[in-house]
């Protein structure tokens, strides 16, 4: 069995993709996308290290700065977001013993994060768009140094990732708050309150403590998801503003 066969079918053909459930397939997609971009980041990191020791003739300075700009974003969004989103979209339903609210939406998250990351990375690679992640205005729109198309596709790629992130946030909170049809109805507001730690906070001042409806790991994921939601809103809003400025 050659390397490619082992990679796709597992050791001695033990990996049988047709036996996987939709949840397993979805989770595995996130892992594959995350690891692929982790590989990207590792290679880019080594290139940048080498370049700092001694400039590489094959890589012009503009290309180096383009790598410097895309590298952390590929690491954060393409790799870390993918792996963490995949794990959490698997964990939340598993820990709450109910199905994920929407596997379709989860697959959209995976696709948008994967395609969005490739879009901004490839845009930087081709056009050398390099305002760095600091985005000191008006550097992202400095078209004396960068191509307007490079910038447009770079920001468009980031916007796709953020859209995928919004889908992830919706999926996590919907999974936490909905009640499957075959179960006794639990109020969504009470579940949300427990997940966000509001009921826990109220318990500190109550004589009759209320039971936590959501387990601690799910509550931790929910609170982390709130941060992700804020990030997505701010980055998406800023991205759209820059995009409008570029196109206008």
């Amino acid at each position: 069995m050659n390397f490619l066969q082992t990679l796709t079918n597992g050791e001695e053909g033990l990996f049988k993709s047709d036996t996987l459930t939709p949840m397993q397939k979805m989770t595995l997609r996130f892992v594959v996308v995350g690891l692929l971009y982790y590989g990207f980041v590792v290679v880019e990191g080594m290139i940048m290290r080498t370049y700092q020791v001694t400039p590489i003739s094959l890589i012009p300075p503009n290309q180096y700065f383009a790598i410097l700009t895309a590298h952390p974003l590929v690491g954060i969004f393409g790799s870390t977001y993918s792996i963490v989103f995949g794990a959490f979209l698997f964990l939340v339903p598993f820990l709450m013993k109910k199905p994920l609210w929407s596997i379709k939406l989860a697959n959209w998250t995976c696709g948008l994060v994967g395609i969005g990351t490739f879009t901004f990375w490839f845009s930087g690679f081709l056009t050398h768009y390099a305002p760095l992640y600091t985005l000191y205005w008006p550097l992202p729109a400095d078209f004396t140094q960068f191509s307007v198309w490079g910038g447009t596709f770079f920001i468009f790629g980031i916007a796709l990732v953020m859209l995928g992130t919004v889908f992830f946030v919706i999926n996590v909170f919907k999974t936490i708050t909905y009640t499957p049809e075959d179960r006794e109805k639990q109020p969504a507001s009470a579940l949300l309150s427990s997940a966000l730690g509001i009921s826990g906070l109220k318990n500190l001042f109550r004589k009759n403590k209320q039971e936590h409806l959501v387990s601690l790991p799910v509550a931790a994921i929910a609170r982390g998801t709130v941060d992700t939601a804020f990030n997505a809103i701010v980055i998406l809003f800023t991205g759209v503003l820059i995009l409008v400025y570029m196109i206008a």
Binding site: F65, Y136, L139
Partner: peptide, 9 residues
């Protein structure tokens, strides 16, 4: 001391 694009180096 701030990054202002490749020309800034």
């Amino acid at each position: 001391t701030e990054y202002s694009g490749p020309k800034g180096i």
